[in-house]
Simulated scan of single mutants.
Amino acid sequence: MKFVVMLAVLLFRRVPGIRLIQYLDRRYTRLLVLIERITGYRAGRVLPYLLGVLPPVLLLCALLARVPDTPWNLAALVVHLLVVFYVLGRRDEMTWIERYMIAWRQGDYEAARHYALELLDDDETGLTPVSMHCRLVARLLAHAFDRLFLVLFWYLLLGPVAALLARLSALAIEWAQAQGQTVNPWIMRFQGLLEWPAARLLGLTLALVGRPVLGIRQWLMDLLRWRLPTEVYLNRQLITRFGAVSGGDASTDEATVYCQRPEHFSAEADHELGCVREMVWRALAVWVALSALSVIFFPALN
C-alpha cells in the first residue's frame, strides 16, 4: 500500500488540489497563532509547539485505530492518500528554482533576484556572484529534503502518523523562526532526531548517484557528526560531485564549497542547477525502487 500511495502522490503533485493543501497550511499557522494567544507563550516554546503538533497527530492515530488493519482496505487507503498528499504533495520543491531559471534566461534579472531571495530566505547583500550561486544550490537541496525526502522517509518507515509528525514539526519551527522567535533547544534536538536518519540516507543516495568513491568517503566522514546542520551536511555531500571532499570539523569550508563553481547568472550556473535537479530526481528514483523492493521482500512493512 505504501508504495502505491507514494507513487500516486508523486504523480499528482501538480494537480489543482495543491491550492487546497496550501490553504490548509495557512489554517494551521492560524491555529499556531491562536495557541500562542491562549497560552501566553511565544512561538518556539515547548507548550505551543506540543499543542500545535500533538492534537492532529493523536487525531490521526485515533482515526487509524478505527480503520480495520487489513491489507488494501479501502478506508485505510483513502486515509493514507489524504495524509500523504498533504505532507508530501503540499508543494513542489522545484517551484522557485524553476521560476528563477526562467526569469534570468529571459533577461528579467529583477524577477530572478526576487525568486532567488525566496530560496535564500535572507538578503543577498554582501554575497559574491559565486557565493550567491552556491547558496542557491545548497538551498535547492535543502528544500528538496525538507519538502520531500524527510516525510517520504518517515512514511516508508513508520507510516502516515510519523510522516504527519515530521511535516507539522518542521512547519511549526519554520513559523516560529519566521516570527523572529528563538526556538527551544529541546524542540530543535527533537527535529534533529527526525532529520538525522533521513539526511544520512539521502546523503548516501547522493553519493551513489554522483561520484560513489568520493561520495561514500565524504558520507563516512560526516556520518556521526551530530551537530552538523542538515543543509551544510547535504551541501558537503553534494560538492563531491565536483571532485572535492570537505574535511575538518568546521560547519562550512568556503574554499571547498566554491571550488570550480560558476558565477550567478551564467550559463555554467544554469547547467549546474540542472545537474543538481537531476541528481535529486535520481535520488528519489532510488527511494522509489527501494520501496518497490520492500513490497516484494518485506510485505509486512507495507
Rank of each mutant, 00 (worst) to 15 (best):
L82K: 08
A43P: 15
W72F: 13
L50N: 12
R26V: 02
R26T: 04
L74E: 00
H80P: 00
L88H: 01
L11W: 12
V79P: 00
F12M: 06
A65T: 08
Y28W: 07
A65N: 02
D69G: 11
L51F: 09
V33D: 13
T39F: 06
I38S: 09
L64N: 06
R45K: 12
L7F: 08
L63V: 07
L54G: 04
G52A: 06
V9Q: 11
L10Y: 12
L32I: 05
V46Q: 04
V67C: 03
L58R: 10
V84R: 13
L11G: 12
C61M: 14
L77A: 14
A75E: 03
L58M: 11
C61I: 13
L64P: 05
T29Y: 14
L60S: 10
E36D: 03
H80Q: 01
P68W: 07
L51G: 04
V84M: 12
V84Q: 02
L34C: 05
C61Y: 14
R90H: 10
T39W: 03
E36M: 09
V79Y: 05
R42M: 09
F85N: 05
N73Q: 12
L59N: 08
V67F: 08
L20C: 05
V57K: 13
D69Q: 14
R14C: 05
R14D: 06
P71S: 06
R26K: 10
A43D: 03
V83H: 10
P68R: 11
R90V: 07
G44F: 07
R66V: 08
T70N: 02
A76S: 03
R45V: 05
I18Q: 14
L11E: 13
N73P: 06
R90C: 08
L7R: 12
T70R: 14
V57H: 10
L81Y: 09
L88R: 04
P16F: 04
I21D: 11
Y41E: 15
E93Q: 13
R26D: 01
P68M: 11
L50H: 12
P48R: 10
G44L: 08
V33M: 15
V15A: 14
F12S: 09
A75W: 08
P56I: 08
Y28F: 13
P48D: 03
F85Y: 09
Y49E: 04
D92T: 02
A76Y: 01
R90T: 03
Y23H: 11
V53K: 14
L32R: 01
R90P: 01
A76W: 01
L24H: 07
L24A: 09
I35L: 10
R27S: 02
R14P: 00
L24C: 12
R14N: 12
L63G: 03
V83A: 05
V15R: 14
L59M: 12
Y28T: 00
V87E: 03
L88S: 00
G89D: 01
W72L: 02
R45S: 15
G40T: 09
D69A: 15
L63I: 05
L63Q: 05
P48K: 08
G44P: 07
L60F: 12
Q22F: 06
Y23E: 02
G89E: 00
L77N: 05
P55M: 11
L24D: 04
G40L: 01
A62K: 14
